[in-house]
Design a protein around this nucleic acid. Structure first.
Lengths: 344, 344
DNA sequence: ACTCTAACTGAAAGCGCATTCACGAACTCC
DNA sequence: GGAGTTCGTGAATGCGCTTTCAGTTAGAGT
């Protein structure tokens, strides 16, 4: 029970009375090794509770079996769902997943990419919306590009404007448009939107899709009908509260994410509004829990895990080609009880 | 733009026309380096987009700045909350967090510990209940012990029976007992429990606390009043459905986790039961979303993030002492609208 | 029996970096 | 002004492992 550093291959080799090379080969099974020696080595390794030093292996040329996943917030069901998909595929391929959470700090995102690069992770998957921020995108690109040049694979879930990498893009625009049409069909003509930070491509796309579909039906969405807030439950709560305190004129509220819709739902309930009687509410993403709300939330269902799976698949397959691939994943409107024809 | 492997320190040194040693020193700032040379090195590094190879650094003796966190399922809000706490503290200490999800596969848990050990992570935090399974605990211990001998720090959130490591333990027993007393006080005398897998210490503890408190009030909880199911939303849904199909006699149902309670809530609603009129429902954990359910869920509030923070703090401080430390964190009953006095 | 593969095994060369050693130069101190 | 310091730098070593490369031994071929 020595407290010494770590048991090394050399220790194992010595215990088994073989050369270092033989010990390595016996453990890895890359080359034929006499069965007697192999037995001895295996026994010694077991005995000493030997675990190879992954860093040394890496340095010596073994290929990396680690992929990094960077998301904004692991405790947000959207990211958790996508991350789950990524992990499933990674797991099937014997890859270890290193999941990092930036808590929406762009600087931290860059830092994590840098760290992953330092670790020579074989792939990096970025989950989450790009910011429409040139400076930030540039800093990120400054890490991503050398990483790719060095042989790293990169895939992104969501739309990034200036990153030339493979990506899986939820059809935010189409989904929001479909949703708008469904709501119009219910008879709504007066809408309000609870939006996340406008600098996110996801928000921009969903907003654009929604607004365009309304415009096609000659319904206009004024800027004053859009309340911007944080991309969180509390953000949704605040936005909805503000809308209500202003005097709610809309018959239907669209929250750009389900998480925000959840906050909005509670805000409405606390204000004494009944759903969908007094106002209809719709979200986007179809995170699992919205089915369990009262009333269950109308939303645009995105196959979250699938998004992650596809991204991981892109990252696994060789992506050093000239053009970057884009996988578009459609969302499907799911009408539940939080929406109904407007009263009267 | 060579597609060669990676830019190395040697490349930088060559470009700056200094020795490798000087380049290293200039970059790390460990020793004084002439400002002119330092400038040259920094410029060259920038120019070449150099990122040190973390593996080489590690191998050469740098101390690891990575901690591993292993949980059952990142998409479960309970784990997400705790993980968030861990990450916050890790982040404050400049540590990188590698979060892994075992999807409740004990074998995978062992595999991840092994992998983290191979990477010489400076600490490992295990989130989640121990299994009352000797064989499994032994396999885990066989990884953990050599890891600790090698200088690794380990902390656990939850109670593990045969693991002699520092731990943060939610007061499951006390919390459940407090909850039971609160429910008794409301007037309930007939209970049912939706339990997770009985082999988990968490389930065992919560069940024991609940049952004991009932017994103190001369209320018995028969084995038939306990429905066992998976520790998930669907598990809760199924368990509640079964309870209902059997003919619900209890006036109050206790789900051993909020996640199960969510499923139970929907099952009840779909069966036409109104809460808390027809039946009261209580959960455990106080994950964020239960506040937004209708009705908001009565539960035992555990400071999830704090659990993670304490665990990380334990893991950061030197824990190679003779006795392992145990931090007990109390839960607090939060009465919301899902519980009410029994009808009549 | 003698050479010629085949099959193993050991010695040694790095992988990229931090670091210790050794060395010359610029100072400091009676 | 010669001996005793710093101070800055380069050369060289080693971290633990995989992988040539070069043996060594045994079996095959004629």
């Amino acid at each position: 029970m020595d407290r010494g550093p770590h048991v090394t291959l050399a220790d194992v080799a010595r215990a088994a009375d073989v050369s270092l090379a033989t010990a390595s080969r016996a453990l890895n099974g890359t080359t034929k090794v006499g069965s007697d020696l192999r037995e001895r080595v295996l026994a010694a390794a077991e005995e000493l509770a030997y675990t190879p030093n992954a860093h040394a292996q890496m340095l010596a040329g073994a290929s990396k079996r680690t992929v990094g996943v960077i998301c904004h917030d692991v405790s947000d069901p959207y990211f958790a769902g996508v991350a789950r998909g990524v992990m499933r595929v990674a797991d099937e391929n014997g890859l270890l997943v290193m999941l990092a959470s930036t808590f929406r700090d762009p600087q931290k995102e860059v830092a994590y990419v840098s760290a992953l690069r330092a670790q020579r992770a074989s792939a990096i998957v970025l989950i989450g919306s790009g910011f429409e921020d040139k400076a930030w995108e540039r800093a990120l690109a400054a890490e991503i590009e050398p990483y790719r040049r060095g042989g790293g694979q990169v895939a992104v879930v969501s739309r990034h404007r200036n990153l030339r990498v493979d990506s899986v893009q939820p059809a935010n625009r189409q989904g929001a448009a479909d949703l708008a049409r469904a709501l119009l069909e219910l008879g709504h003509r007066k809408f309000a939107v609870l939006a996340g930070p406008r600098s996110l491509t996801t928000v921009g796309d969903r907003l654009a899709g929604f607004r365009d579909a309304l415009a096609d039906a000659d319904v206009t969405l004024a800027e004053s009908d859009i309340v911007t807030s944080a991309f969180t439950r509390d953000g949704g709560y605040q936005a909805m509260s503000e809308l209500i305190s202003r005097g709610l004129t809309a018959t239907c509220v669209f929250a750009t994410t389900d998480v925000m819709a959840i906050g909005a739902l509670t805000a409405a309930r606390e204000a004494g509004l009944s759903l969908p009687g007094d106002v209809s509410l719709a979200g986007f993403d179809d995170i699992p829990v919205v089915r369990d709300l009262t009333p269950p939330l109308t939303t645009v269902a995105l196959p979250l895990e699938q998004l992650g799976e596809r991204a991981m698949e892109l990252a696994i397959s060789d992506n050093r080609r000239s053009r970057s691939r884009v996988l578009r994943v459609a969302g499907e409107v799911v009408l539940r009880d939080s929406t109904a024809p407007p009263r009267g």
